[in-house]
Simulated scan of single mutants.
Amino acid sequence: MPDWLAIILLGIIEGVTEFLPISSTGHLLIPQNMGLLPSKSDLFNVVIQSGAVLAVLVVFTKKVKELATSLGEPSTRDYLAKLAVSFLITAVGGLAIKKLDIELPETIPPVAWATLIGGVIILILEFFHKGRRGTTEITWTVVVAVALAQLLAGVFPGTSRSGASILMALAFGVARPAATEFSFLLGIPTLMAAGAFKILSAFKDGTAGSEDWGMVALGTVVSAISAFIVVKWLIRFVQSHTFNGFAWYRIILGAALLVWVHTKGGV
């Protein structure tokens, strides 16, 4: 398979899965670990997530403009402060996790278990959330909880950053649309910072020269386009649907991966 075609496929996978509660990282790692698509660097897998962020900026243009033009309003400053604090907790926690090297290996077994267990957790949380309208208020408790959910997703590949943060907010009584909006907006600084950190680290440790930056750029652009389509659909979807369908998908996929590991000796 031509490298450019593999990059396009990985970009589509990233863009489609980034904001769905099924884990973009897991879906990038699965075909690469199975040999279905060529393995790419961790920098590539992280940086192309920044493309998905561009889709959020486009889809939430109205919300971003509203926040930017109403800084004098206490409610706006409060919301931005909560986004900032949640991001800072995630950033500091992420650096600590990196320094302590407590992340699980990005191989099939951890991804499979995280995918399977995550599906079960979604079903449980959706069951307890059933019939609850929720509130649009993002409390400071939710701010901390969502940040911790993002850190959890960072430690366990296959967890889903967006899924974990949205469901954590739901668990604390936030209405589904408000939880989704906060998660998506929080993803902007989170994913951009992660991409920037990877790039700076590559230049610092001297590995930047071996990276095919043209392919990284292509993957990022494809990711942005496909994410734009999914984000617009997901915003409408969450108004009246649960994540149960995604939960069953995760359970089936996770179980299938574990069977594959057991029968084929996958890594």
Rank of each mutant, 00 (worst) to 15 (best):
W4C: 08
A6C: 14
A6L: 09
I7D: 01
G11R: 00
E18H: 01
S24M: 09
L28H: 00
L28C: 06
P31T: 12
Q32M: 11
G35Y: 12
K40L: 11
D42K: 10
D42Y: 09
F44I: 14
V47F: 04
V47R: 01
A52D: 07
V58S: 12
T61G: 13
K65F: 13
L67A: 07
L67D: 04
T69G: 05
L71Y: 05
E73T: 11
S75D: 14
R77A: 15
L80S: 13
L80F: 08
L83R: 04
V85N: 09
L88S: 13
A91R: 05
G94Q: 00
L95W: 06
K98L: 13
K98Q: 12
L100D: 07
L100V: 15
I102C: 04
L104H: 05
L104M: 14
P109Q: 15
P110L: 03
W113S: 09
L116D: 03
V120P: 10
H129L: 10
K130R: 11
K130Y: 13
R132Y: 15
R133E: 15
T135M: 14
E137W: 09
V146T: 11
A147V: 06
A153Y: 01
G154F: 00
P157S: 06
R161F: 03
S165Q: 01
A171T: 08
G173D: 04
G173K: 00
V174M: 05
A175R: 13
A178I: 01
A178S: 09
A179G: 07
T180Q: 01
E181V: 11
F182V: 02
F182E: 02
F182A: 05
G187C: 11
T190I: 11
A193C: 07
A196N: 05
A196V: 11
A202V: 00
F203A: 07
D205Q: 08
G206D: 09
D212I: 08
D212H: 13
G214H: 08
I225P: 00
S226T: 14
F228G: 03
V231Q: 05
L234I: 10
I235D: 02
R236S: 13
R236W: 07
F237V: 08
V238D: 02
F243V: 02
N244M: 15
W248S: 12
W248R: 05
L253E: 00
A256H: 04
V259Q: 14
V261C: 12
V261H: 08
H262A: 14
